[in-house]
């Protein structure tokens, strides 16, 4: 365990993002404030257009926030951090079609400066972990959507990040593949001991995967409610989803999202069990 940062591996503090200036300004993020502990699996859900993509771009250092900070392992994020890997929904666009699957996974390891032997070893291991040992020499576009997303996951885990950020990674694959990939990512998380931040619009998925679910409001976004799932660590598509707790959690998240569709940072009413929303609110509200 990391002694100095045991209060949280990833901290989001007073994050706000406004696009443009003056009368054309669009406020995407109102005020985001939360902490993720090392090894946690946290899901973020929100109505469409909640500014999730903006938030992830700020989080991964691709976009500069207007106010506030993201702190990863005690350091403020000002550029893409070395300890973070991001898996996007658009696997077909994030994998490079001119390279084989193995070369795609290897490329970030080249950027890190690993020797060829080490790179090959990690590529082989990562392909094995996602069940694609035989596909290293194929090109991404020769694979199905679910397999391509496995490649993107393999690329991320071969990089050995401490935090894995996933942006609706399974939104574009069919239901059966999706269930397989959900279990894959849960297993990889416990094998590798990494922290996962998983953005989704699927309520069941968020409850099934996460230990905590953060529910966002509409834009300008804030965290409307935090739901701890308290489901058994060993999850199974059949058993976990049939638990009475699963059904009640699902209802709770569903109801909050229905409410979230109509409210934003400035109009939301306090929610029961909400731990993170009120800080800094008076300062910005008009």
């Amino acid at each position: 365990m990391n002694q100095t940062h045991d209060d949280g591996i990833l901290k989001v503090r007073g994050l706000r993002k406004v696009y443009g200036e003056g009368s054309k300004a669009v406020e995407a993020i109102g005020h985001l404030e939360f902490t993720i502990r090392a090894g946690e699996f946290v899901c973020i859900v929100g109505p469409s257009g909640a500014g999730k993509t903006t938030f992830l771009r700020c989080l991964s250092g691709l976009l500069k926030p207007t106010e506030g900070t993201v702190i990863l392992e005690g350091r403020e994020v000002t550029e893409p951090p070395a300890d973070m890997a991001v898996v996007l929904q658009e696997y077909s666009r994030s994998l490079y079609p001119w390279m084989t699957v193995a070369a795609n996974i290897e490329l970030p390891l080249k950027a890190v400066g690993l020797t060829k032997t080490k790179r090959k070893k990690r590529v082989t291991e990562a392909l094995h972990s996602v069940g694609l040992s035989d596909s290293g020499k194929s090109y991404p576009w020769q694979l199905s959507g679910g397999m391509q997303q496995r490649v993107a996951i393999a690329r991320a885990i071969a990089y050995r990040p401490r935090v894995l950020v996933m942006d609706e990674p399974f939104a574009a694959v069919d239901a059966q593949t999706r269930a397989d990939l959900e279990d894959l990512i849960r297993n990889l998380r416990s094998e590798l001991g990494i922290t996962v931040l998983f953005v989704t619009h699927d309520i069941d998925e968020s409850v099934y995967l996460g230990e905590r679910v953060l529910i966002l409001s509409s834009a300008p976004t804030c965290v409307l409610k935090e739901v701890k799932t308290n489901l058994p660590a060993e999850r199974s598509q059949l058993i976990t989803r049939a638990l009475p707790e699963f059904a009640s959690l699902r209802t709770e998240v569903y109801e909050t999202i229905q409410y979230a569709k109509g409210v934003n940072y400035y109009t939301a009413q306090p929610q029961p069990e909400n731990e993170n929303r009120d800080e800094g609110r008076d300062k910005v509200a008009t």
């Binding site: 691709l62 994030s94 490329l107 970030p108």
Partner: peptide, 15 residues
């Protein structure tokens, strides 16, 4: 998305 991927994996200018 291809450029963002390169940026998030911290590719050097040459790579």
């Amino acid at each position: 998305v291809q450029l963002d991927t390169a940026a998030s994996y911290r590719f050097s200018g040459r790579l």
